[in-house]
């Protein structure tokens, strides 16, 4: 274990990032920012995986990160596509404009 950063600091950072993402998804109204916050949550999980893999000297956690990055890219692609179609229809990219169904 390196002396520069400890596992507690890494996990603390990861939890802070995850919370920022979670709060962002819940409170932001702009769809692009919502998608961005989702990416932040996945990245926080990646950081946790890498830190755990590092202290255990195990590669499985680091391999997981590559797959998560691909999944995150796929997810945001679909998300942006739907946001684009919606903005073409309503002219806005605001979650408040989307209320044809009872929420």
């Amino acid at each position: 274990m390196s002396e520069i950063v400890t596992i507690q600091q890494l996990l603390g950072l990861s939890i802070i990032l995850f919370t920022i993402g979670l709060v962002g998804v819940v409170t932001r109204r702009n769809l692009i920012l919502v998608l961005l916050s989702l990416e932040l949550m996945l990245s926080a999980a990646n950081l946790a995986f890498v830190s755990f893999a590092y202290i255990q000297g195990d590669l499985a956690g680091q391999i997981m990160v590559f797959f998560v990055m691909i999944v995150a890219a796929a997810e945001v692609t679909v998300g942006l596509a739907i946001a684009l179609l919606l903005s073409r229809k309503t002219g806005k990219i605001n979650a408040d404009e989307v209320r044809a169904l009872k929420w």
């Binding site: 979670l22 999980a45 997810e75 998300g79 739907i82 919606l86 169904l101 929420w103």
Partner: peptide, 17 residues
Amino acid sequence: SLESGLKYLVLGSLSSA
């Protein structure tokens, strides 16, 4: 359909995270 897709995507990705 678009709106339900968006809701499903945002909440679904949240649960995946």
